Simulated scan of single mutants.
Amino acid sequence: MTSPTFSLCVYCGSRPGVHPEFSETARSVGEWIGSRGGQLVYGGGRNGLMGIVAEATLAAGGRVVGIIPKALVEKEWAHRGCTELHVVDTMHERKRMMAERADAFVALPGGIGTFEEFFEVWTWRQLGYHDKPVGLLNVAGYYDGLETFLRTGVEQQFMNAWQMELIRIGRDPATLLPELVQSAGLAPEPRIEAI
């Protein structure tokens, strides 16, 4: 089997959410990855947006690498159809392996786990552990409040403008995903081993 042209880590919910656009976008993200010979790296679940993006990637001919801790195999219904499914011992091991296997990161709508993973990979970039692109896909206005809050953090001087420049926020996957993947080609060697 040929190597994937790129590897995109997608953080998203293990639930579908209320708005139909959440599922539609997860499907289009998976189709975009698969149709371009890419690889999806994600949390390994079969439910919600996680399952939708994985199924769409596979259906479009892409590779899917799922990484899930033992404790969540039943809760998130591990996706046994992944090209590679890694069952690991801890959340830390999961997140590190996801970071190692990805060229870029994007967060779709999700809950606490999605928020935590997005903020952590952004923090790692700020600290210089990696220089991989990080994106936030604001579907149906889901992250409008977060965008406002982040700007407030800068205005109140708890964050700097350069920290905001470390992430890309977009509403259209057809625009944001190519930006992330193209930017990944310019990234120097990561220092994930320092995490």
Rank of each mutant, 00 (worst) to 15 (best):
L186D: 05
F6R: 13
E55R: 10
V29A: 06
A102T: 00
F22S: 07
P173K: 03
E24D: 04
R94Y: 10
Y142G: 03
H92V: 01
E55K: 13
P109H: 04
F22H: 15
C9Y: 06
A99R: 11
M91V: 09
G135Q: 02
F115Q: 09
L136K: 00
K95L: 10
R151Q: 10
V10R: 02
V18H: 14
R36E: 03
G51W: 04
C12S: 07
V154T: 11
W162S: 15
R171I: 08
K75N: 12
S28F: 00
G66L: 12
A54S: 15
T123S: 15
L137W: 01
L176P: 08
F149M: 15
R27I: 00
R27D: 03
A59H: 05
E21V: 11
C9F: 13
A99D: 08
G170L: 07
F115V: 00
E189M: 05
D89A: 13
F6T: 04
I169A: 00
G135D: 01
E24M: 01
D144R: 07
E93V: 14
N160F: 05
G110S: 06
V10F: 06
A161E: 13
E147N: 09
R36W: 09
L146G: 05
P4R: 11
P20C: 04
I67F: 14
A104C: 07
E84H: 13
L137S: 06
M164L: 15
G30V: 06
E120R: 03
L85K: 10
G44I: 12
T123N: 12
G30S: 06
K70A: 11
A56L: 00
W124Q: 08
F6P: 00
A184R: 08
W77G: 08
T123H: 11
D131H: 06
I169G: 01
V29Y: 10
P188K: 12
W124R: 09
M1S: 12
T123Y: 08
A184G: 09
I68M: 15
T148N: 10
S3W: 09
R101C: 03
H86I: 02
C82G: 08
E24F: 04
T90C: 12
R63F: 14
N160D: 09
S183P: 00
V139W: 02
H79G: 04
V18A: 14
I112S: 11
D172P: 10
S7T: 02
A140V: 02
